[in-house]
Design a protein around this nucleic acid. Structure first.
Lengths: 214, 214, 214, 214
DNA sequence: TATGAATGAGGTTTCATTCAT
DNA sequence: CATGAATGAAACCTCATTCAT
């Protein structure tokens, strides 16, 4: 039902619509954005949206799908190269973690509005629809934990499996609030330059990994 | 405009309505809950809701106000007593952090649905309305950072101000995903018993505090 | 989903809505009647229609259901009494047929607008939904053919089964055009008083029944 | 405004469009057929449809016009020849009626979808527009009643004018339901072969004509 | 006070028609 | 001529809010 436009004009419109939606998502939730608003932001008529997407929900899903494809591409790149090499090139666990921290933050920051929409979308769906996203999370986790293999000698933690879980959870959560509530949250941290911020975040998890669990 | 009911029956109704709203917030977002739904869950008529609250938004605000009062009370208790004593009683920084971690997690867990609603509510408001919540956050931060004073000798970090910011940010963020997406998120961590989970979370920040920043 | 109102005001509204729909159906097809039109004819708001009926289609179905119940009641009456007696009381086959003709015409005439809507409604449905109406047609057919038993001596037709089929078909079809196109059709017949018309119609089928099939 | 295309390609398009519409009319009502649907069935663009027809209604009217021309041609043929001869050749009133019955049924059957559309179209129009169709009906009626002149000796009816009206009405109505609701209606008659069916139909009116009105 | 019927603004969606390419 | 993208009016439907009872 979602049409794959071949013509230039159509593609342009589609891009305008998508750009309009993304732009509006930076300001408010999807449910609070009306179709008329999207259309007028994109400078097209409301009807046109429906010749590109089955309905409003389908439009969002198309956007999320695009995002997913972007993620998949990133993952495939990461999986094709040997991330271990990169991590090793960093020179130290601490430095590797800082790279991860900064990279993750930049990515999430850029996609914050989409991620917010995605969370809300999935929250309202049955678990079945969440499965494919879980798959990506798992793959991302593998890429992430590779750093633990490279620097396993530095790890002071005894339970490797637990360490991995916590490690992955940490990077999934720690930037969550910044993404959700750029203007909210604990303002104290927002006046930090992002380079300082991400270095500290890296150091948090570094301390964990290298401190023995007593 | 919001009426302060003195009569017993009226209070009962108000409680029923509030309970209904809270119960529904555990399942879905505020915007997806209709007034009719709340009323029927509370076994009262829709009209009655409007004699207790000016409108739907006002109802939520009243609920958030109640939540705020609960928070304020907690803070006042914490501020009246000397938290330092409690932290010292813990015996060690590590143990103190575990107590904080567990306490914070339990509180957030219990209020997850309200916090979710609060986030969404504030996201749609001008910053002015967020100010009063910021105030509470600041006060909570002070209570939190008291532990750093008690165990300042254990700290390996050099920049005290930065350490505090990160420390506060950490506890504000690290449980965020669990709260937002109980059934989503990084599933890997959800099979952990909460006692194990909160201990690890405490250890993360413990490692940070006690590791020198290179 | 369709609510059974107990309250007087609600019932009044429902009646007003139904009356409005019936009235409009006399002028045009259901698809050409807008919800706004129905509501304004009934002097209520559009929204109110939706607290009585799930949607526009459901409203029509409710009307058809009411009609069906009326038909069922008529059939049950006919089935409980002994129609044979009535037919015999008519005194002759010819007279009995005239009674049937007139009765059938009057009924169809009064319900013409509903029958028109019903036809269109069923035409757009899968056969499954038509089944229950078929049942009623069958029962009506039995009531009808009873007259053939009473006056079987007068019948000149040899194939009884065929005769019954044709007999039933005749009464189902012969008034169809008058119902569908009151203002159209073969105008020549419309200037006849209905008493004359129905008598002739009865005579048509009388001639068939009493003429030997060659 | 409706263009009379001279060019071959144009005529081909017009035919494709008309064929598409006719084909769709066999499945559903005109109102339920969208312009896009017609165009895509005809494998042309929607815009092209509008260079052939002023608008959607005009397209239907053109189709009905074609149908009317077909009818007119048939009538002219009938009127140019002496139908009386044909009827006489049948050998008997009964046989002549069977021929009429079968012929009428076949014609209506083949044009059922158009007749259905025509009925609905006229129903929504002011009587003025129906006038020209009435004219054709009148002419058709004359052709039909010619058989009564040929076999006037066989008629038992006394009121000739009334007999003619009823006779014409009969043939206009009796096939109506089969046309409207091929899959609905009184199923009992649909399992009959059409030859048997049309013979019985002829016999119905034969009985009427040859039975004295008491 | 309590009810739930009634309102109507606002959102989504469809589709006949136009028009740039 | 031909295309199908673009338009926008009009239909359906929802739901916060009001009001008669």
């Amino acid at each position: 039902m979602r049409k794959q436009p071949k013509q230039t004009r159509s593609i342009k419109t589609r891009k305008a619509l998508t750009a309009a939606l993304e732009s509006l998502l930076k300001e408010k939730d999807f449910d609070q954005i009306s179709v008329a608003e999207i259309a007028s932001t994109a400078c097209v008529s409301t009807g046109l949206l429906y010749s590109h997407f089955k309905n409003k929900a389908d439009f969002l899903e198309a956007l999320l799908e695009t995002y997913k494809e972007r993620i998949v591409k990133r993952l495939e790149e990461a999986e094709s190269e040997d991330v271990s090499v990169e991590y090793r090139n960093a020179g130290s666990l601490r430095e590797a973690l800082r790279i991860i921290s900064n990279y993750t933050y930049q990515q999430l920051q850029g996609d914050a509005h989409i991620i917010r929409a995605l969370s809300q979308h999935l929250r309202a769906r049955p678990e079945s629809e969440q499965a494919e996203w879980q798959d990506l999370r798992t793959r991302a986790a593998l890429t992430l934990t590779a750093v633990l293999d490279v620097y396993s000698d530095d790890l002071a933690r005894t339970d490797r499996q637990l360490t991995e879980k916590i490690f992955v959870y940490f990077f999934n959560s720690i930037f969550y609030e910044v993404i959700q509530n750029r203007k909210l949250g604990n303002i104290s941290v927002y006046d930090l330059p992002s380079e300082v911020f991400t270095v500290e975040i890296a150091d948090i998890i570094y301390g964990y990994l290298t401190t023995s669990p007593m």
